[in-house]
Amino acid sequence: TTITITINGEELRIRGDHEEIHKILKAWEEDHNDEEIVRLIRELAER
């Protein structure tokens, strides 16, 4: 699965399995701050 998210003008492409993507979207849905979401995404992007 690949998704693209733009946060603060920075486009981040994430490839991951369903569970990893779900974790990010769940954090977003629960209204975590952008920095935390960006950190989760970067961790995935670095793999």
Rank of each mutant, 00 (worst) to 15 (best):
18 H>M: 13
6 T>K: 12
35 E>S: 07
13 R>Q: 14
29 E>W: 09
34 D>Y: 14
24 I>G: 00
47 R>H: 15
13 R>A: 09
6 T>L: 11
34 D>V: 14
38 V>I: 14
23 K>H: 10
45 A>G: 03
47 R>N: 15
22 H>C: 07
35 E>A: 11
38 V>L: 15
37 I>E: 00
25 L>P: 00
32 H>A: 12
6 T>G: 02
30 E>H: 10
4 T>C: 10
17 D>E: 12
35 E>R: 06
17 D>Y: 10
33 N>D: 10
26 K>L: 13
42 R>H: 05
5 I>S: 00
45 A>N: 06
2 T>N: 06
36 E>M: 05
11 E>M: 08
28 W>D: 00
9 G>V: 02
8 N>C: 07
36 E>Q: 06
5 I>M: 05
37 I>N: 04
22 H>F: 13
36 E>V: 07
20 E>F: 09
14 I>E: 00
33 N>V: 14
37 I>T: 10
34 D>L: 13
46 E>D: 15
27 A>I: 11
28 W>Q: 02
30 E>G: 06
32 H>C: 11
33 N>T: 12
29 E>F: 10
34 D>Q: 07
14 I>C: 02
16 G>Q: 04
11 E>Q: 12
41 I>S: 00
3 I>V: 12
25 L>G: 01
20 E>S: 06
5 I>W: 02
20 E>V: 06
33 N>P: 05
16 G>N: 04
16 G>E: 03
3 I>P: 01
34 D>R: 11
44 L>D: 01
13 R>C: 04
46 E>R: 04
15 R>M: 12
32 H>T: 13
19 E>G: 09
12 L>T: 03
39 R>H: 05
2 T>E: 14
42 R>D: 04
3 I>C: 03
6 T>E: 09
8 N>K: 07
35 E>L: 12
35 E>F: 07
25 L>V: 08
20 E>Y: 05
13 R>G: 04
33 N>R: 08
46 E>W: 03
2 T>S: 11
1 T>V: 15
25 L>Y: 07
31 D>I: 07
4 T>N: 06
13 R>W: 15
27 A>D: 05
7 I>C: 12
33 N>C: 07
6 T>H: 11
8 N>I: 03
39 R>Y: 03
19 E>W: 05
44 L>Q: 02
26 K>M: 13
16 G>A: 09
11 E>I: 14
7 I>W: 05
8 N>P: 01
30 E>S: 12
43 E>Y: 06
